[in-house]
Each structure stands twice: as structure tokens, then as C-alpha cells.
Nucleic acid binder design. Structure first.
Length: 740
DNA sequence: CGGTAGAATATTTTT
DNA sequence: TATTCTACCG
């Protein structure tokens, strides 16, 4: 068979062992995708029905790519009924069918992280808890970790040490919030990301028939990126594979970078201890990178204690050394990259470059640099579906599908404004909470209950209910018809246009794009109902699509986490500074530092030919300049494969010649409100005179200090606060006053 | 109730 | 800096 011939010996062995449990430890660039796809093709060729194969991947993009590759390997066999996708999307599909067996409505809606956080925030408000002590986002991530470790509110409330711990942290009510959150989700027929897994497990545990059904379907189970699975996922898999015992997991412990999401590296480290009969294969030959790149990566990762034994090697050339570049500021780091790309444009396309960073906010300075030299780039940042105007429309759609979805209801009950204000909503919520009725039931019988709401407002509430009810009754029409009718009915475009800002134009464009996406979805899918589309909009990150079609010639910018599985000829990794990479939050634990190290390992091993590491002296962060030490990781890379240099060139912007006139004209992100532009120069004159060395100032964060130096024609000042706390401050943006 | 100006706050990483 | 929150006025 053709697809077997192109494999290396070891790859072929992995493919041909179809039965039993096996674990494939696969280094970066070792062709694991090829192994998985060949293996599935092989199974199908041997006569296995694709419907009996479950292939779980880390992103939906990789699932899609996998399917298309299998199609290429065995074009004559139809594979439309192969189960391929992320844990979340496959289990969402199962739950859509079976949710009623565990007390959910099959029309449940899925909460994204933002929804979950607002819900928690509301709980905190409702119960008059201090939002400084109970921060919604940290509460949420704690809840998420608990769920992924199979600790439900009840068992949490029985864990004495944990409760004690909360009390010590001054958060005695955490257990209560957790309980309320889970209760609310259930009442509202909402599931968050973790619930998709958790409820699947509950389903399999509580309903023997369903368990038997899926055990019989999934004769062969394959899991990619196994190092990033968590306890909950493993638990589900253990149940599903019990009948046929054909489980193949593929992963690389050195690339485990999702522990913040509950990923448990022990799943891969200890696999053989709970599957004692499993076979281990190691894919150690790298087909991607040069020797220098691999040596650098290997020497770095050897500093980690927790890892499996393996030796990644390549037949490729030595290649160029890893370059480490020091620049004076984050701005010149951007200039450095832009200039580098420009200088090498005879050899490389823009699309040969990948710029990687630890956190999304770091993209800015690079964008600036690239713009100055007119280099095309794309930032893989926030999802389209996270924009406010898009979320509004989606909230309508969710509420139409699931009337109990309070999260969506609160979002849009007065958007566009229809005269149902804060006080009214407050009254409704208060009553509903105290009388154990759902918001939806309550507002549908608002006439009958005395809530001290005036009749005009009651009328408006009624209209709102009628609107939603009308669409709910017609929700089986095609998603496109439904959405376009809805947007007309609520005059959403008018509402956006009324804002009269530069933003409103792009918002309108975005909504049009959404309608367009829905149209496309309807054309492609047999089931063109809105529910299906909504699932997709939460579970599929459309950024993934963009990475795939790289015909256009642009530089890619993304976080390292997003770069998993990709490869580029040239890779820039920026911000190699203590407190940035490794990140500040990781500093205090050895385990976290090891994960940061793996993150850099992943980053380096994306490269085929060149790696550029950079760090800078001072960086503009928050609203002042900070200086960080160079990252400890730089010293851990074998010196024989690196070369160091310093870059200090300032690039004069062609576009930005006069300082103020163009400040907003080439903004990449959403433009500012027109009105605000008027106020631009207000603060400028206030302080420009009177700044002298030795003068005292009072900064609104750092307190009193003395000016020790003036820089850049008085644009920056160096100030000493306290004994030896020295900061450089931007005069124009910092908040401080001169004192006599 | 709605709109807005000014204040407060925020930067891990994502299915 | 950019975004979100709050308080106040019409």
C-alpha cells in the first residue's frame, strides 16, 4: 500500500499495530500527524467502518486537516462519518443527543469564558460579596480546575483543608459561589467548556445503556496531543475504551503547555502504569529543523527534571546558529524584526516568518515596526466571535434557542435600548431569585405580578417577550433567514449607526460578515438550523482557518500557545526577559518554570531554518518603563549553537512624519471615537515647563519622588521614589503633579 | 431611563 | 495605553 511505503520503519510499526493500547512518544517535527492519518487510513483499508473510529485532536483545525489528509491517502473510501474533532466538539455533539438523560434540555446553550465570568460576577453582586476579594476571573479559573479534577461543589464543601485554605485566603464564600454557579448553569440549561466534558462523564457513569452504546461505536480511539489532556478527559476515555481496548495516544511530554487549563502531564508520564500492557513507540527523528535548532532546543529542555527519556535527532544540516539579539526598547525590537525581514526579502517571503510571544499584548510593538516598513502581517488574536456586536446578535440567537439562557437575556434585554433600564432589571432579578422562578417565566407573566414596575415599562417588557417568542416558534427555519429577519426586526444596523463613531462603521461591517458566515454555513450544511451554528461559533476558533490558507504573503504573529503544531522557516521569539518569559506568575514555582521552559521549547522547534531570540533593555508596560533581566533560559541554551548581537537602529516612520497629525490614521485596531480626538492635546502643556532635575513630584501610584534626569527633550523623566525605586516616566501619559 | 465624562483598572496562556 | 465602570445630569 502506497501510504505505508513513504513511512520510516518506526512510523510504519506505529501504523501497523492497530490492536491494543499503544503510546507514541513523538518529538517535534517527527511526523506524528502523518502517523495518525496513515493509521486511520490503514484501519479503514482493513475494513473498519469510519463510524467506529474516534479521533480526538487539540484543535478543530487539526481535525479538519486530518480528515483532508486521510481523504488524500484513500480517496476511494468515503469517511464522512469518521468521528474527528476536539474533545469539546465531539462531546458537545453527543450531549446534544443525550442531554435529557442527565436532566438537561437538549437545546442547552454553551457558555464561553466571558459568559461564565459575567455569570460569576452577577452571583457575587447578588450576594453582596466584595468583588475585590472575590475576583470573577480567578474564581472562574479555580472552578474550572476543580471541575477538571472531578471535584464537584458537594465534595468541595466536604473537604476540610480546602475550606480552611479559603478562610485563610479570606475567601470563605468560595464554596458557596461554586455551588451557586453550578446550580445556575443547570437551571439555565447552560454548559461551560468544562461542563461539556463533565456532563459527558456523568452521562456515561449514570446511564448504562448510553455507555454501552458509545463503547460499541468507538472500536478504535486515537488521541493526539495527549500531553495536554486532563484527568477528566482521561476518565472519559477510560470508560469509552473499556470494551474494545483499542486506544492509541500520541504526544510529547516536552510540549505540555496547558496546565493552566487543567492539563496533567502525568497522563502521559504515567500512561504505561495504568495501561500496563501497552506498547511504547518513540518517534525521535526530526524531519523539520536543522541541527543547530535541535541542539538549542535539546540543551534547553535538558534543564527540566520531569520528563521522559528520549533523544531527538535529525539528518539535516548544521544550519545557521540561533541568534540572540539585544535591543534597547520594545519599539526597537519591532524595528529589528521589520528590518531583518526587509533585508532578507530577496531570499524569504513574508509568509516564511512567524513571530511568537508569551502574551497577546506584546504584538503591538512588532505591529508598529512592521507597519513602518509596509510589511504585511496578520495577528492571530481575539476571535471574531468575541466582538461585542457579534456577541449581542449571538445572545439573541441563543435566547431564541434556549429561553432559559439568562446570561444572554441580560445581555440583550435592553440592547438596542428599548426602555427597560437598570432599576427594572434589578427588580426582576431580585424577585426571581427570591421566588425561585426563572427570569423568562417571570417576564412572560409580568402583568400578573406586582413588582412596582410602571405600566409603560411592563408594555415594553411584553413586547420584548413577544419578539423572542415569535422567533423561538420559528426557530426551525434556516439560520440565515432567522438571523437576517431578526436583525431587521430589532433595527440593529440603525442602532449601530446611531453611535456615529468611526467604530460603528466597522461594527456594521462585522455584523454583515456574521450574516455572511451564517449564509455560508447554511449552504455547506445539511442541518442549517441556528443551534448547530451557535455550537460552532463557540467551539471553533476561526483564527485556525486563517492559519491554514497561507497563500497570501504575510508575516504571522501569534502567542506560542497558538503555534502548536505549526512550522515556519524563520521564527522570531520576542521578549526573552525575566517577568515576561518566564512570566511573572510562574516565578515562584519550579513546576511552573518547567512549563515555561517547555513553552520555549515548543517555540524554538517551530523553526525549520532560523531562530531569532530577542530581548530588550527597557520596555513600555502599563504606564511606565520597566527594565527586566534577560531571561534565564538564554543561559541554558548550549553556547556552541548561538550567536549574539545588539540592535539599536531607530526607523524613521514614513507614514508618521509629523508627530500628532497622523496619530490615529493608521491605527490597526478599532479606531477611537471621533469625539475623543478633540481632547487629545489637553494634557500636553500642563507640565511641559517646570520640569527640572531635583524637582519633587507626586505620582498617583508611586507617591512622592524626585526627578533625577530628563530624557528625549523632556518627554520622559527619571524619578526616584523612596530609597532606590527608580522609574522612567512618560510625561505625556503618566498621572502626577509637581509639588513645591 | 439614557447618555456621557471622567475615573478606575488592567496584561498570561485557550477549548 | 485601552477598556470598562461609575456617578451624575438632563
Amino acid at each position: 500500500m502506497k501510504y505505508l511505503d513513504s513511512l520510516s520503519d518506526i512510523q510504519r510499526k506505529c501504523v501497523e499495530q492497530t490492536e491494543g493500547s499503544i503510546i507514541i512518544i513523538s518529538g517535534p517535527g517527527s511526523g506524528k500527524t502523518r502517523v495518525i492519518t496513515s493509521k486511520i487510513a490503514h484501519l479503514i483499508n482493513l475494513g473498519v467502518n469510519p463510524n467506529n473510529i474516534l479521533a480526538l485532536t487539540f484543535t478543530n483545525k487539526s481535525a479538519k486537516e486530518m480528515v483532508s489528509r486521510i481523504n488524500n491517502l484513500i480517496p476511494e473510501k468515503p469517511i464522512w462519518n469518521l468521528w474527528a474533532g476536539t474533545f469539546h466538539s465531539v462531546f458537545a455533539k453527543i450531549l446534544r443527543k443525550e442531554a435529557n438523560k442527565i436532566g438537561f434540555n437538549n437545546q442547552f446553550t454553551i457558555l464561553d469564558n466571558e459568559d461564565s465570568k459575567t455569570m460569576i460576577k452577577r452571583i457575587i453582586q447578588d450576594h453582596r460579596l466584595d468583588k475585590e476579594i472575590y475576583k470573577p476571573s480567578s474564581i472562574f479559573s479555580k472552578i474550572s480546575l476543580l471541575k477538571n479534577n472531578l471535584i464537584d461543589p458537594k465534595s468541595y464543601s466536604e473537604k476540610y483543608e480546602m475550606l480552611k485554605n479559603d478562610e485563610n485566603k479570606n475567601q470563605p464564600k468560595f464554596s458557596f459561589i461554586y455551588k451557586e454557579y453550578v446550580k445556575k448553569c443547570k437551571q439555565n440549561d447552560n454548559m461551560d467548556f468544562d461542563d461539556l466534558l463533565l456532563n459527558t462523564l456523568n452521562l456515561l457513569r449514570n446511564d448504562g445503556k448510553t455507555l454501552e452504546k458509545y463503547q460499541s461505536i468507538f472500536k478504535y480511539i486515537l488521541i493526539d496531543e495527549f500531553q495536554d489532556t486532563n484527568i477528566l478527559q482521561l476518565e472519559i476515555i477510560k470508560m469509552l475504551e473499556k470494551k474494545h481496548n483499542n486506544l492509541c495516544v500520541v504526544g510529547d511530554d516536552s510540549q505540555s503547555i496547558y496546565s493552566f487549563r487543567g492539563a496533567n502531564i502525568n497522563n502521559i508520564l504515567n500512561f504505561t502504569s495504568f495501561y500496563t500492557k501497552s506498547n511504547i513507540f518513540k518517534l525521535e527523528e526530526n524531519f523539520r529543523s536543522t541541527k543547530n535548532i535541535l541542539n538549542a532546543a535539546n540543551s534547553l529542555i535538558s534543564n527540566n527534571n520531569q520528563k521522559l527519556d528520549k533523544n531527538i535527532w535529525t539528518k539535516k544540516d548544521q544550519g545557521e546558529k540561533i541568534k540572540i539579539t539585544k535591543t534597547d526598547s520594545d519599539k526597537s525590537e519591532g524595528n529589528f524584526i521589520a528590518k531583518f525581514i526587509k533585508d532578507n526579502s530577496a531570499i524569504y517571503n513574508h509568509s516564511d516568518y512567524l513571530v511568537l510571544y508569551r502574551m497577546n499584548s506584546q504584538s503591538r510593538s512588532i505591529e508598529e515596526g512592521l507597519r513602518k516598513l509596509n510589511i504585511n502581517y496578520k495577528v492571530f488574536g481575539l476571535s471574531f466571535y468575541n466582538r461585542r456586536e457579534i456577541k449581542d446578535i449571538l445572545a439573541y440567537l441563543k435566547l431564541i434557542v434556549n429561553n432559559q439562557d439568562e446570561e444572554s437575556l441580560f445581555r440583550i434585554i435592553n440592547t438596542p435600548p428599548r426602555g427597560i433600564g437598570k432599576t427594572t432589571i434589578e427588580k426582576i432579578r431580585y424577585f426571581a431569585n427570591n421566588n425561585n422562578v426563572s427570569i423568562w417565566e417571570l417576564i412572560n407573566s409580568i402583568e400578573e405580578i406586582d413588582l412596582n414596575i410602571n405600566s409603560g415599562t411592563k408594555k415594553r417588557i411584553n413586547n420584548f417577550c413577544e419578539l423572542i417568542n415569535y422567533f423561538s416558534e420559528n426557530s426551525s427555519t434556516s439560520a440565515f433567514d432567522l438571523t437576517s429577519n431578526l436583525i431587521n426586526k430589532i433595527d440593529y444596523f440603525d442602532y449601530l449607526a446611531k453611535e456615529e463613531t468611526v467604530e460603528s462603521i466597522s461594527k456594521i461591517e462585522n455584523v454583515k460578515e456574521l450574516i455572511n458566515a451564517i449564509k455560508l454555513f447554511c449552504d455547506e450544511n445539511k442541518n442549517d438550523k441556528i443551534g448547530e451554528f451557535l455550537d460552532q461559533s463557540v467551539l471553533v476558533n476561526e483564527n485556525e482557518q486563517k492559519k491554514m490558507d497561507q497563500e497570501e504573503n504575510f508575516v504571522s504573529l501569534m502567542t506560542i500557545h497558538q503555534s502548536k503544531g505549526l512550522e515556519f522557516k524563520n521564527v522570531f521569539i520576542i521578549g526573552l526577559e525575566e517577568n515576561i518569559f518566564p512570566s511573572q506568575q510562574a516565578m515562584f514555582s519550579k513546576k511552573d518554570i518547567e512549563e515555561e521552559r517547555r513553552l520555549l521549547y515548543v517555540a524554538i522547534t517551530r523553526a525549520k531554518e532560523q531562530v531569532n531570540l530577542s530581548y530588550c533593555n527597557t520596555r513600555f508596560r502599563f504606564n511606565n518603563f520597566v527594565s527586566n533581566e534577560p531571561s534565564r533560559f538564554l543561559n541554558e541554551i548550549d553556547e556552541s549553537c548561538i550567536s549574539k548581537s545588539v540592535f539599536n537602529l531607530k526607523i524613521q516612520s514614513k507614514i508618521n512624519q509629523s508627530k500628532n497629525s497622523n496619530r490615529y490614521s493608521f491605527k490597526f485596531k478599532t479606531p477611537k471615537k471621533l469625539i475623543k480626538i478633540k481632547n487629545l492635546n489637553k494634557t500636553e502643556n500642563k507640565l511641559s515647563h517646570g520640569l527640572k532635575i531635583g524637582k519633587k513630584i507626586k505620582h498617583n501610584i508611586f507617591g512622592q519622588g524626585i526627578i533625577t534626569d530628563l530624557l528625549d527633550s523632556n518627554e520622559k523623566i527619571v524619578v526616584r521614589f523612596g530609597r532606590d525605586n527608580i522609574k522612567t516616566i512618560l510625561v505625556r501619559y503618566a498621572k502626577f503633579d509637581l509639588i513645591d
